[in-house]
């Protein structure tokens, strides 16, 4: 049910793109409008989210420690998984963001011959890291649409990333993106547990990204003339002088509309999970709560059993002081 709703939602966006693309006079204005609106919503939405997170306070020092603490000089401190300095904590966050450190620990408990055993299972780590890095390369390559002339770094990246197959120009990053998305989607449907917990948004995000990826890769493999036209159009957008009469390929509008939907959806969905990592006190605080006082900004006095100071020690037989 949730899956069909998600398929229907993505199909609807796709259909809107195809309809708009098939009307020549609508094509360019629609691309201009979608581009500005979606990027605007994306930037505003992300700022909104970050402001909300930043406004929330961090009252307690609650890192989850995954290694030996820094205590006696005789014991080897695990600086990576249990940092006790801010720079160490920053490194830990970087390890999470760049290497998916926590996911590397993934394993699955199974009963084999009546014994509960734990088998390492790094498939999800592999697929996730493939997906995110493929997405990064794809996004970096899109930067070429913002700059004229295109920086050497990006053209270099393109030369490594591109290859041709039966005359079609394809990119490793785009294909990896699609394969890893497919694997993630397959896992979500195949693994009964994951299927059980999935909501509309989980299917929708994957399908939408997949549609974006397919349309993008098709666009990428289209002719040089089309790509030049898109590049000119994109440069006009980024210079805030939209070329309203530019001739752009229909497929571009489909892709642009799907990306627009993704950008608008992004800030208000689980796709903002990056914040869970970088702003998360579980990772980004140093485990030094006994060495340095972590102040609670909203601390308020609480009722407590008060023990009068300067009183002689309580003698045996006396009652406990009550409040």
């Amino acid at each position: 049910m949730k899956l069909f709703q998600a398929i229907a939602a993505v199909a609807l966006i796709l259909l809107a793109g195809i309809i708009a693309a098939s009307v020549p006079w609508l094509r360019t204005p629609a691309a201009v409008a979608v581009s500005y609106v979606s990027v605007g919503v994306f930037v505003a939405g992300i700022c909104y989210r970050f402001v909300l997170w930043a406004k929330s306070s961090v009252p307690f020092c609650i890192p989850v420690t995954c290694g030996q603490q820094a205590s006696s000089p005789g014991l080897r401190h695990d600086r990576l998984d249990n940092p006790n300095t801010s720079s160490g904590a920053a490194l830990r966050v970087a390890m999470e963001v760049l290497c998916f450190r926590s996911l590397w620990r993934e394993h699955r408990p199974e009963t084999r011959n009546g014994v509960l055993v734990y088998a390492n299972d790094r498939r999800l780590w592999l697929v996730s890291i493939a997906f995110h890095y493929a997405l990064l390369v794809v996004m970096l390559r899109h930067l070429a649409l913002l700059f004229a002339p295109v920086p050497h770094m990006l053209t270099g990246l393109g030369r490594i990333d591109d290859f041709s197959l039966f005359g079609a120009r394809l990119s490793f990053s785009g294909l990896l993106l699609l394969v890893s998305l497919g694997a993630l989607f397959f896992r979500r449907l195949w693994n009964a547990r994951v299927r059980f917990i999935s909501l509309f948004t989980d299917h929708f995000a994957l399908l939408l990204l997949f549609a974006v990826g397919v349309s993008g890769e098709l666009l990428h493999s289209s002719g040089q003339k089309d790509l030049e036209a898109i590049k000119h159009f994109a440069h006009s957008l980024s210079a805030f002088h939209p070329a309203m009469h530019a001739v752009i390929p229909p497929l571009f509008l489909v892709h642009r509309l799907l990306v627009g939907a993704l950008l608008i959806y992004f800030p208000f969905s689980k796709l903002m999970h990056i914040g869970g990592i970088v702003a998360n006190p579980v990772y980004n605080l140093a485990n030094n709560s006994r060495a340095r006082m972590h102040a609670n900004p909203w601390n308020y006095p609480v009722a407590s059993r008060s023990i009068p100071t300067g009183e002689p020690p309580i003698e045996a037989g006396s009652k406990c002081p009550n409040r």
Binding site: I62, H273, G275, G276, I277, W298
Partner: peptide, 14 residues
């Protein structure tokens, strides 16, 4: 009051 709480409400990817 708790950034942890808000983040954990927002960022679960299931």
């Amino acid at each position: 009051k708790y950034r942890s709480f808000r983040l954990f409400m927002d960022s679960c990817v299931r």
